[in-house]
Design a protein around this nucleic acid. Structure first.
Lengths: 199, 199
DNA sequence: TGTACATCAGTGAACGCGCGTTCACTGATGTAC
DNA sequence: TGTACATCAGTGAACGCGCGTTCACTGATGTAC
């Protein structure tokens, strides 16, 4: 028999690999068990249901994203630099964890209200962004409406960029000779230098 | 028997309704036939396969999006106003056609390379954005790299905002008392007034 | 140190289900002569 | 105007498939005494 948590971790890893290779729709407990070289009933000893497995993946995803954002937040330098690093961290998370990113924002896939810890991890990530925007833009003439709009704009921008990169839309449209990495950097640079700043 | 194209249109409409209600994974030819009150084989007289049905939905979606963007492009006023209207048109399209929007950017769901017209419709929409960015930002000191970054930034922003709105993420995070409509407007206003503009 | 027992992580068979797709058929409509 | 025929959009039965989930069982491990 395996050590206690071995199969559990293997199932989680195989699930992400499967989603990465064949998309969210291809995720099935049976295929995951097959990849782990284990009977298709074995995963049920670690996850009560397929939904519970997905919820665990979502929760871990948000936790990892939060850690990466908080790491950017702790960096020395100007507030603008911290915000810029957080934006890059968001995109980096998506590129490094495409399968997790794909399932994290699909409420119809996994009911997060049934999994409080995953919901809390999502809030934790969001609150980093709120703090960074606050630090960068709060001022006597900047009301809550404007702060909320700036937050929404930043989140939309990094989320959209991540999504388009993962779906391959940008790769198809941007000039093929250009390096994707450079495009990401130029785009985030431009955004953080201009968007929302008073002129 | 029905008139020639009646069931065809009904199948397309039911498919979108089904996706809207239960998500992309719930789309099945059999359920769609059921909703149309027709045998489950009947749709095959109009679509060779499920993939062909999805490709048709994607193609029509991009065509409609292109029309809305081009309508914004034809508006009188400043270039900035046209770009701002196009951004709003993109978000409006997503909110008005959530099911279509959800499947339009999922290459693993429908292989667009197998459906040239859908791919062309996608390029048509993208080229509107390219023209509007060009009109707004081209200048002696603005090279192609910068124009490409501005384009990417704009697309990412409206795409991310649309995605977050459809997935309900923004509704959960933003202060509940605020009107979503107002948040969209403030965000797009702020973005178009600041992002990418020389200071 | 030995023994009885509970627990835990596996196996393998079986369930019912909905799916995409194929096939043979039907009956109404349109068309050539 | 009638007739023969092709076409077209349906029906209904059937196929094989993979899925999530349940059940009864097994054998190794940990633990109380």
């Amino acid at each position: 028999m395996r050590r206690v948590t071995e199969l559990r971790e293997q199932v989680l890893a195989s699930s992400l690999a499967l989603i990465e290779e064949q998309g969210v729709a291809a995720l099935s407990l049976r295929e995951v068990a097959r990849r782990a070289g284990v009977s298709h009933q074995a995963p049920y000893h670690h996850f009560g249901s397929k939904d519970a497995l997905v919820a665990e993946l979502v929760g871990r995803g948000f936790t990892r994203l939060s850690e990466m954002l908080e790491s950017a937040e702790r960096t020395r330098g100007t507030p603008a630099r911290r915000l810029r690093l957080a934006a890059r961290a968001y995109v980096d998370f998506a590129l490094a964890n495409p399968a997790a990113f794909r399932i994290m924002f699909r409420p119809e896939l996994a009911d997060l209200s049934a999994c409080p810890s995953a919901g809390a991890a999502g809030s934790r990530a969001y609150s980093v962004l709120v703090r960074l925007v606050d630090e960068n833009f709060r001022g006597p003439r900047v009301g809550p409406d404007r702060l909320e709009a700036i937050t929404t704009m930043h989140w939309s921008m990094v989320h959209g960029l991540s999504t388009l990169l993962l779906d391959g839309s940008l790769g198809k449209r941007a000039r093929p000779a250009r390096d994707t990495e450079a495009l990401i950097d130029r785009t985030l640079d431009l955004f953080s230098r201009t968007a929302g700043r008073q002129r």
